[in-house]
Structures are given as structure tokens and as C-alpha cells.
């Protein structure tokens, strides 16, 4: 299949971009890495009037380090993160997740911002960044704002962007030295979309214990205070203290009733926790 006809623009700066995104007379789609949008165009699942390629805008590839965070421009690629071309404040979590996304060819072009905005429940970043409590930094007609990732995705392929808004960058909080994390993805084969994702971050110095059950039918299930997943004190050993019953309840509440699906989600979470607990 070939896409239906569309116009194409590649603005060189943010002002030019904002001017284009304000066109209310047109159905405008933004193209970053194009690794999901490309096939969707070919399959005619989306038929925009105007495709705005945002990869020529320097601000969207910007990387900034602060005392408590690393800010990655939306057009930073998975491969940039995998290869360490951008700083890592997560003790290796982000590069590890990045290197498991799809195939290298996809990682060369696919971007962190594009993945978030596409909001495929089975994608890696949405679950990983929710566990790490990152924020989407948004630029729009009325200025800049930031939303936590676990509020950013609102449904399957749906995000909390207002008309004319775009994700400019992602703010990754700096983890403490003693922070432990785990990320486990179950997929049918290498490079395939996830069937289940489990993610956990335990950063006692910052009083953070977060867990995510991802690759569900909808938004990831985020335990922002994950203590209920553990019986007793998680400090005594996460793996031993894991108690599946709260996770089972959360899966049931999310409408995941299929026994096999439920089992895969629990296994993914348990294996992420085991990973975080490993010395």
C-alpha cells in the first residue's frame, strides 16, 4: 500500500514549527523517527494533509543536565540512548531498555518523543519512563508545561496534548547511587512488540518505590507508591517480599481477565523485581 497524497514541510526552528501546528484548516501530523507513522501512512491508517518533519530543529535534539535531572530532546533516538551519546542519570536503566527496542534499524531512527506521543501500550518507553517518574515537557501555543508520564498517556494511541501542542523534551529524574531498578519484557521474539512488561524502581534515598505493569490493552498500570506489592518491608529484599495479590487485583480492575495474559503480566513484574533485587 502507498500513502494517500500529503504535503511535507521540514521547519528549521521551533517558531516555524509552531506556525505550522497552528494550521486549523489542515490535518497535520508530526513526523519524528517515522518508525510507527511510516507504516501507518502506507497502510492509510492515517491520511494527513500535511506532514511536518521535526527532525531539523536543533532544540528538539537538545540535551541538558541539571542537578536532579537529565533533559532529552524529543528527537533523541533510541540508538543515541543505547550507545551512550546522551548522558544517563538512571544507572544504566535507559540504555538497557533502549537496546531492547525493536531492531537496530528502528532504533537508529525512532525517537523517545515520537514513541511517547504515538502511545502504543506495548512500547517500551511509556512503561519505563512511567516507572522512573519522568515528565513530558510540552510546548504549545500558550507556552510550556510539564506532565508526569503516567498522566501523559490517556488511552490507546491517545495522549494529553492539546491542539497545537507538542512534546519538546523528556525530563528524566536523576536516580540516587543506591537506586535499584528492573525492567522485564515478554515478547514472542526478538524485536517484537511486548506482550507484557514489568518495571520497578526502588530509590530509598529519594523515598521512591514505583512499579509498572505495562503492555496492557490500555495505559500502563502504575503503582506510584508500590509498597502494597510487598508484604513487610521491601528493604529486607524486594524479591522475597513480593506479594502478587495486589498486582492481581490491579489487573482485574483493569479488565485483564484472560488467565494467560494475567500470568504473563505477573511473571514480567516478578522478573523485573528479581532483577532489581539481584546484587
Amino acid at each position: 500500500m502507498k500513502p494517500s497524497a500529503f504535503d511535507y514541510e521540514r521547519p528549521a526552528d521551533l517558531d516555524g514549527l509552531i506556525a505550522l501546528t497552528r494550521r486549523e484548516d489542515l490535518f497535520v501530523k508530526m513526523l519524528a523517527g517515522g518508525q510507527s507513522l511510516g507504516p501507518m501512512l502506507n497502510l492509510r491508517l492515517v491520511q494527513p494533509d500535511l506532514l511536518v518533519d521535526i527532525t531539523a530543529i536543533p532544540e528538539l535534539k537538545r540535551v541538558e543536565e541539571t542537578a536532579d535531572a537529565v533533559i532529552l530532546g524529543a528527537c533523541v533516538t533510541h540508538a543515541d540512548i543505547e550507545d551512550g551519546r546522551v548522558p544517563d542519570a538512571t544507572g544504566g536503566a535507559l540504555p538497557r531498555v533502549a537496546c531492547g527496542i525493536a531492531y537496530r534499524a528502528v532504533r537508529n531512527r525512532g525517537t523517545i518523543g515520537g514513541s511517547l506521543v504515538h502511545a502504543d501500550p506495548a512500547a517500551d518507553w511509556i512503561s519505563c519512563l512511567a516507572a522512573i517518574d519522568a515528565e513530558a515537557m510540552i510546548l504549545g501555543p500558550s507556552g510550556r508545561r510539564a506532565i508526569p508520564i503516567d498522566e501523559f498517556m490517556t488511552g490507546v494511541f491517545q495522549v494529553a496534548l492539546e491542539p497545537g501542542e507538542l512534546v519538546e523534551a523528556v525530563r528524566i529524574p536523576r536516580l540516587s547511587l543506591g537506586a535499584r531498578w528492573g525492567f522485564h519484557k515478554i515478547s514472542r521474539k526478538t524485536g517484537e512488540m511486548a506482550q507484557a512488561i514489568g518495571a520497578i524502581l526502588h530509590d530509598p534515598a529519594r523515598d521512591v518505590l514505583r512499579a509498572v505493569i505495562g503492555a496492557t490493552e490500555s495505559v500502563p498500570i502504575v503503582f506510584s507508591g508500590a509498597a502494597p506489592l510487598f508484604s513487610g518491608s521491601p528493604g529486607s529484599g524486594l524479591a522475597k517480599a513480593f506479594d502478587a495479590s495486589a498486582a492481581v487485583r490491579a489487573l482485574e480492575d483493569s479488565g485483564i481477565t484472560d488467565a494467560v495474559d494475567r500470568q504473563l503480566h505477573l511473571v514480567a513484574l516478578k522478573r523485573a523485581i528479581d532483577q532489581a533485587a539481584r546484587p
Binding site: 500500500m1 502507498k2 500513502p3 494517500s4 497524497a5 492509510r44
Partner: peptide, 10 residues
């Protein structure tokens, strides 16, 4: 083109 032929088919 194939794309134009697909437009017609649609």
C-alpha cells in the same frame, strides 16, 4: 502511480 490507483480503488 500505485498511490493514485489506490485512491481510485478507495
Amino acid at each position: 502511480t500505485r498511490a493514485a490507483a489506490e485512491d481510485i480503488a478507495a
